[in-house]
């Protein structure tokens, strides 16, 4: 654990909580892509199956359970509780265009051809592109509320901080994981355009 890893995790947690609270407080999921949230729930589910097979630390278990719980709670709010406010017409990105190629890639490029390892790899690849339906939705509607942009900022910041964590770990522990690093770079790059808008416009974005 280093400072980049910890702040990355906290940034990720902040993003998830911000989104949940926004939907809960406004009683609306307008402007939020339910498809991105389904993909994130799938990411956490496939990555954290090791909760059932191995114990790493209390911190590790707690964060995994919180991430999974919040992901499903968010999907529930969007598709069940506040379904009437869900803007399905603008959330038109096809999830299978991401899930199928990512699944194929996970089977081809992984560290070990085993069930849990392939699901872990799948989750890493899928996470890197899971935000695309949300970004696509913003580009279609041409706007994003301030609180939505805060959510995206912390979500993007998290993986960028993990990149620094991996640089740190390479220098001080000689550790590197090429799959996580390359996927993390792709993920961070996808947010660059958004980061630029967030910093220059500050408030809600309108294209």
């Amino acid at each position: 654990m280093n400072i980049f890893r910890l702040t990355g995790d906290l940034s990720h947690l902040a993003a998830i909580i911000i989104l949940l609270l926004k939907i809960w407080k406004t009683r609306s999921c307008a402007g939020i892509s339910g498809k991105s949230q389904i993909l994130f729930a799938l990411v956490f589910t496939t990555r954290y199956l090791d909760l059932l097979t191995s114990f790493i630390s209390l911190y590790n278990t707690t964060m995994k359970v919180i991430y999974i719980g919040c992901a499903y709670a968010t999907v529930y709010l969007i598709y069940m509780k506040f379904k009437a406010t869900y803007d399905g017409n603008h959330d038109s990105f096809r999830m299978e265009f991401l899930v199928v190629p990512v699944g194929g890639l996970a089977c081809l490029v992984n560290h070990d051809f085993s069930f849990l390892e392939i699901l872990w790899t799948f989750s890493i690849y899928l996470e890197s592109v899971a935000i695309l339906p949300q970004l696509f939705m913003i580009s279609k509607t041409g706007e994003a509320e301030t609180i939505t942009t805060h959510y995206l900022f912390f979500l993007g910041l998290y993986r960028a901080l993990y990149l620094f964590n991996w640089i740190w770990r390479f220098y001080f522990e000689g550790f590197f994981d090429m799959i996580a690093i390359v996927a993390g770079m792709v993920q961070t790059i996808l947010y660059c355009d958004f980061f630029y808008l967030y910093v220059t416009k500050g408030q809600g974005i309108s294209l």
Binding site: H12, H111, E117, F176, D177, I179
Partner: peptide, 10 residues
């Protein structure tokens, strides 16, 4: 370890 996954990372 050069390319082992780290399940401690989230």
């Amino acid at each position: 370890s050069d390319s082992q996954t780290d399940k401690d990372e989230l």
